[in-house]
Design a protein around this nucleic acid. Structure first.
Lengths: 242, 242
DNA sequence: TCAAAAGTGTTCTCCCTACACCCATGG
DNA sequence: CCATGGGTGTAGGGAGAACACTTTTGA
């Protein structure tokens, strides 16, 4: 452990942290992973004790390869979730001078999209909890702003990345996909038009498991066709399509 | 001036810098503002002496309100250009452990769009120079990557923000606007379709200065209609329009 | 006088939109 | 047996894409 005052610099240096906004989808609602502060024993974790916050923590300047690595490491330590650094999308930095009462702290915020049913078991329930967006309590620091910025960001990113498919199971149904889009974009789509549009994109593979479907009541299963998605992205160039 | 070793911390802290990618448009090409390193007398500016780099510098942890402020301040000090912090768009953070040979430095990169004819006179030619994108030399640190990321980012942002109009003079012509879009997006548009599309958006005001136009050879002048742009943004909601 | 630059309008096609009916299940 | 959920097709409209000709200026 470091001796007090071991690290000295000619000019003042801020502390740097990396925070994670982890989104999951349970088939109904978007969920976000939060931790309860103050259960850690680190001396430096003394602010906002008992409050909910985004998982994240301090960059280890001597060994963390970059802040995405920091975010990934802290996420694992604090919630049990293992997400590779390259699956964490950095979206903004928060650096206001008084955002942390302890010292000058700059945080680099990341978001991640996970298949909830795959990771829910890994979540360390002692420390972390999945919240529906509507139920998110007041968060520590400026984490409320970070969360809402993250939401705004994926609303934009959904046009450029396969955001939806990272959140769904490997196998999913059209109603599920539509629900997810509606949850993220906060709009309603017509069922038939949504299906037509998706068909045209050629980014879905219908799963044909031989058994003829009993009735239309049970939805058709699909999987995401990454190849089709990549092709589509290359073909399209566009201009002012807000 | 600070005494050597005046600032001590229990854990290692990285230095934080803010860099600026300032884009201008001369009617033909996109240009970017670069500085030559090493002309400053600061002791800490000893890396990559003589190389071209993006303007930027260290966060003053005691007084800079946030990193956008740092970026604005450094830009003014290094190039003479005054750009308000709120006009600097943060787009990414660079934190690889070995990106600066002197110490651990994390930089928060911003871009700005300026009307070249308005600011060119302010640029301190002793220190800074406007480069066409094709002529940009090898840059210090990882600034090559930062510049290319900035370009990629405005290609996306152009769909969500009035990127083009920040770069053009207050009064401009359709061919100028089209050229700019083509320069940014690296595509060619049909002149007539481009004009039609722009007409439909209702974001251009034709400038009618009474004098009847002599011939079609001299282009019509337009100005940007911000109100129309905002209306358009509100109306449109969209889904998978890559 | 000829090349280069800028303005304009139409047709065709495709995609987005709006909209209704059928089937099967489960309560 | 009826409410719910899910699947499917079509007609109409609007916007993007392809395309040619005229005018003027400057070399």
């Amino acid at each position: 452990m470091a001796r007090k005052g071991q690290y000295t610099y000619e000019y003042p240096h801020p502390a740097v942290t990396a925070d994670c906004v982890v989104f999951g989808y349970d088939g109904k609602e978007l969920k976000v992973l939060l931790i309860k502060r103050g259960k850690e024993k680190e001396a430096s974790t003394t602010a906002y004790v008992g409050q909910w916050a985004l998982p994240g923590g301090f960059l280890d300047a001597n060994s963390d390869k970059n802040v995405a690595f920091t975010a990934s490491r802290e996420l694992r330590e604090e919630t049990g979730l293992q997400i590779a650094p390259q699956n964490l999308v950095e979206f903004s930095t928060y650096s206001d001078i008084d955002r942390d009462p302890r010292e000058r702290v700059i945080t680099v915020a990341h978001y991640a999209l996970v298949k909830l049913e795959k990771v829910q078991a890994d979540t360390d329930a002692e420390k972390a909890e999945w919240f529906s967006l509507a139920d998110v309590p007041a968060l520590a620091f400026d984490h409320d702003a970070i969360l809402s910025d993250a939401l705004a960001r994926i609303k934009e990113d959904i046009h450029f990345r396969p955001v939806g498919f990272d959140l769904l199971p490997d196998v999913f149904t059209l109603p599920q996909l539509q629900n997810l889009y509606e949850a993220i974009l906060q709009v309603k789509f017509d069922r038939r038009n949504f299906a037509n549009k998706m068909k045209h994109y050629h980014i879905l593979d219908q799963i044909d498991d031989g058994t003829p479907r009993h009735g239309t009541r049970t939805p058709i299963q699909y999987s995401f066709n990454k190849q089709g998605y990549d092709t589509l992205k290359e073909e399209k160039d566009f201009m002012l399509e807000f």
